[in-house]
Design a protein around this nucleic acid. Structure first.
Lengths: 369, 369
DNA sequence: CTGAAAGCGCTTACAG
DNA sequence: CTGAAAGCGCTTACAG
């Protein structure tokens, strides 16, 4: 059974504009001019304590709520930011959005969200139009190609900050941006695997559109440090399917005993693929993820991964934006967080000798829907 | 290393208000009055095709973007909804938000988001204030207690719709609401387990604040249908930790061979706990989740669960809201989606005889951080 | 079909 | 410290 109420409780049509109390109503009730009320709600120092209190009392008595549209229109300060991103549900995105929301709320801003479907200039103009206020600020999450293109297409009169993938050496982002540089963490993860005795480490790459990512560079550097062979990175998308497919392709390669994955979903998909072949993680194959999604420590075996604090990154981006528009919140930290290797249960020394042959016993049928 | 750009490319301060083109600029350039421009951008039929085209051309030539604040202030139709919820990252929430965003974008609305920290009336007033427009519409996601309280505290002059847990028989929501009724799916899941030969099914409940949820009722009904003993539901929160703890408590109970969990995170946490004890899922314990999170089919073993389409639910909620405010989008479906049992690998017949003793060999140390 | 008027609720200057 | 003025960019009626 499905259920829904068809039109109950539609007593109010939501357009009771006659009844909402305005700054003038407050002024009248408090015996002052409406400008004085304006000063009070804007925390102007040029109001005597007595009148301030009186006005404040009237405001709460009347249930006055300032009209944001009017404020924005009259040239008040920016009070909202709208975030543009290709996803709300992938971990990095949703965690970053959470951080952005927290930080914007702290400084008294509202937050809008709009999904990037396609990063055409036309769409970006539309997106900017939905920026809630005239010239309302934008934050674009540009982890992916569409996001990066969106960032480029943003109208130049809109204050914009971005969360991006760590740019390569010497590349300067076109907008104030924040990122996590995972070079060292990726190198650490690779060294960890190498230190366990693996001859080399395979890498399943998340999408990139402008040269290798910093995490890929870190991986490669660790390999080169010890003259380990560097297999070509496996290209993947963001979801578990990709890790599943990548790992299936590696199962018959006796040389492949360690796998660094561009994110945890990919890693978890790889774990699944290995297990389906009757092999064990980490006994037959070590796997390391990236991100430390909340579930990572509950997976079986618990996933070794590189933790990234996307929520803090979101907060840092808001701080950067506030610098840009000259509104600095109290104690806003703009430093991007570090990435950190978390060793759990999916990494171990390589098998004495990988059979390469599938161990029939453990073979499941392929994925169910 | 952490990285961030300090203040690069801050050529624009974002307040180039002198330069933004207004309806009057368009009017002048097109040789018409500004009302005519207004009519064009509002799709009024009372404009000749010739003038419409001319205006449209000028609009794109000048890069005109209507000012939403001015529109809202002047009494134009509602053009945004802001969603209130306690989380952006839990699956049900983020998927619902995605559906809401899609649907609002389709009808030309913008979407705001504000997290519910605490559902005090004061906070709700503040939240309403951040509704982007005066009397801007609200959607509250009331899966949890704080959400439900928020829904109650919403100022009555704001058009509001809600996504809620399926209400018990005879309970009428205070606002137009949508929900998924999981009664039958929960009963199906329980029957499935019973049909496999389990004597009974234990249930790990998600939080409830007004009697048993529909899914709990479905579970109980299936048990009663066959006179199976009905163990007290185990209370849990929304995350994997809770399933982990609940399952640990069940491991020594030889009677407990099947577990229905209030959501997939709980179920996955339970799987982890069982495995840590050296037991196997589903051989020693069958586990069923709820929601079908994207990862469910990749877990090892792949999770049997009840699929719920939260994205469709979000869309249905927007349709309900549009009915409320009298703005009906093209082809909006408001029917709430059904829940559906997806049988995968975590369910099987009960063990011939559960030892109840822990199998030392497989015991991991407890959870890493 | 199109234009001139008035006003939405606020905020900046500008005066006192 | 406080009030009277003007205007932000649009939209509804109201006239033609």
């Amino acid at each position: 059974m499905t259920g829904h109420i068809d039109g109950l409780n539609i007593g109010t049509d939501g357009c009771d504009r006659s009844q909402v109390v305005s700054i003038r109503d407050v002024a009248r009730a408090a015996g002052v001019s409406h400008q004085t009320v304006s000063r009070v709600i804007n925390h102007s120092p040029s109001v005597s304590d007595a009148t301030r209190e009186a006005v404040l009392a009237t405001i709460s008595a009347l249930g006055f709520r300032p009209n944001r549209a009017a404020r924005a229109l009259a040239g008040g300060p920016l009070q909202s930011v709208t975030v543009l991103a290709t996803s709300t549900s992938l971990w990095g995105y949703s965690a970053a959005i959470q951080g952005i929301e927290e930080a914007t709320r702290t400084v008294g801003f509202g937050m809008g969200f709009r999904k990037i479907e396609e990063a055409s200039p036309k769409n970006m103009r539309a997106a900017a139009e939905y920026a809630v206020e005239p010239a309302g600020a934008l934050i674009v999450i540009a982890f992916d190609r569409a996001g990066a293109m969106a960032l480029q297409s943003v109208p130049s009169d809109i204050p914009t900050a971005a969360i991006i993938q760590a740019p390569g050496e010497g590349i300067v982002p076109a907008h104030p941006s924040v990122w996590i540089d995972e070079f060292e963490a990726a190198r650490d993860a690779t060294r960890h695997l190498l230190g366990l005795g693996h001859r080399t480490v395979h890498y399943v790459a998340i999408p990139s559109w402008s040269g290798p990512t910093r995490r890929e560079q870190g991986w490669l550097t660790a390999l080169q440090e010890v003259d380990a062979p560097a297999p070509a990175p496996l290209k993947a998308g963001w979801t578990a399917e990709w890790g599943y497919e990548a790992a299936r392709g590696l199962v018959d390669d006796a040389e492949a005993t360690a796998l660094l994955c561009g994110n945890d979903d990919i890693a978890l998909g790889a774990v699944r693929a290995i297990s389906e072949q009757g092999l064990k993680v980490p006994d037959d194959m070590s796997i390391v993820g990236f991100d430390d999604v909340p579930f990572a420590r509950f997976s079986c075996p618990a996933l070794t991964t590189v933790r990234q604090d996307f929520t803090a990154l979101g907060r840092a981006c808001v701080a950067t934006l506030m610098d840009l528009i000259g509104t600095r919140g109290p104690g806003m930290r703009r430093t991007a967080p570090e990435a950190e290797l978390i060793v759990r249960e999916t990494t171990a020394p390589p098998p004495a000798r990988r059979s390469g042959a599938r161990c029939g016993a453990g073979v499941h049928s392929s994925l169910s829907p």
